[in-house]
């Protein structure tokens, strides 16, 4: 057998290395009590944002299509997950299992939305996906704002625009229009977030290093050539986009289950752009870059509270520094091993 180079192993090693090491360090900090409560409160959001960034990287970096509504899928997953956990509260008393089922439901719902958005738009060439996903994010936010879902002994009740149902004895509103969701039992834990990050990394890295991943990257690099060797452009664009939406939905469930109140406004355009910033600064198509950027840029604003007056200034300087680093010789040198042959 000829010398074969396998660049993939390195991605796995770095990605899992960073995540597992970070988990152990944080667990040690928790055990020894060396952790501030504000940082502790951010652990689950960090995990959710890592999953958001890695999944958006699949659309933006690997597929090469711009999506400006990733928070929309997060929102669908968040509220879908809340409805699922509330509805299943009696059926599945074991909380971690209920969270896992809720995540699967949130992911499924977001995936269906991905199909609805993707099927018409991904058949087109050009920047249409950016425009439509931008609108999608806004539409989801506005729909959730006028969505009323309640549950009583007779089952789930649902209405749009105004509350058109009366809950029976002992009934409870799950989503209450613009007020959003309140009184959710917090199911998300740092360990659950860590496991979701691991599962996301494993599945997405596996996907990238398979015939499916090659087909998606071929469509990105040259769609006409990809078609000429038998790859259906629409099919693989849709596949990458929907997988990306599913993980965003699961991240949404994880995120929502960390708070007792959640409103639709949390998943607005700014959140979509924030996640896009993680992806661009981490490097397009670079999975472990997304992990670092998402974690760092989520923690940073809190860390900078100590120097409150200069907070936004330092945040901006860091963004510029990361951009410079991405284009620097230093990065090339650090990653020089990437092209060494493996026998």
């Amino acid at each position: 057998m000829k010398k074969l180079f396998s660049p993939g192993r390195r991605d796995y090693t770095i990605s899992f290395g960073i995540v597992i090491l970070a988990y152990l360090v944080v667990q040690a900090m928790i055990l020894t009590g060396n952790i501030t409560s504000s940082f502790k409160g951010q652990l689950v959001p960090i995990c959710a944002y890592i999953v958001m960034a890695v999944s958006l990287n699949l659309t933006v970096g690997v597929l090469g299509e711009l999506s400006l509504g990733h928070a929309g899928f997060m929102s669908v997953g968040a509220f879908g997950g809340i409805v699922a956990t509330t509805a299943l509260a009696d059926a599945i008393p074991f909380a971690p299992l209920r969270l896992a089922v809720a995540m699967a439901f949130g992911g499924l719902l977001a995936g269906i939305m991905g199909v609805i958005v993707g099927v018409p738009v991904l058949r087109l060439k050009g920047d249409y996906l950016a425009i439509v996903t931008l609108a999608f994010g806004q539409i989801i936010m506005n729909i959730v704002n006028v969505l009323y879902i309640g549950r009583d002994a007779r089952g789930l009740h649902f209405s749009l625009l105004e509350q058109r149902f009366e809950l029976g004895e002992g009934g409870k509103m799950i989503i209450n229009g613009p007020i959003g969701v309140s009184g959710v039992s917090k199911l998300s834990t740092f360990t659950a977030g860590f496991l979701l990050v691991l599962a996301t990394l494993l599945l997405i890295l596996n996907l990238l290093h398979s015939r499916t991943g090659r087909a998606v990257m071929a469509v990105r690099d040259n769609a006409i050539a990809a078609e000429s060797i038998g790859i259906s452009i629409t099919r693989y664009k849709l596949l990458a986009f929907v997988v990306s939406a599913v993980f965003a939905g699961m991240a949404g469930t994880l995120y929502a289950m960390n708070y007792s109140t959640v409103t639709a406004a949390k998943f607005d355009f700014n959140t979509s752009i924030l996640v896009l910033v993680f992806v661009v600064l981490g490097g397009l198509g670079n999975i472990w870059g997304s992990i670092i950027a998402a974690a760092l840029l989520t923690v940073l604003p809190e860390l900078l509270r100590a120097v409150n007056d200069y907070r936004m200034l330092l945040y901006a300087i860091l963004l510029i520094a990361m951009m410079l680093f991405n284009n620097s010789k230093l990065k090339e040198r650090l990653l020089a091993g990437r092209h060494r042959e493996v026998e």
Partner: peptide
Amino acid sequence: RLFSRMTVLDNVKTALHHETTYTLAESLLH
């Protein structure tokens, strides 16, 4: 029109897409 950011080997392997196949589940879980 090459897949310019992919390796030489992957350019050819991409063209074997329909020659050697496995399912999406096998792609995701190896």
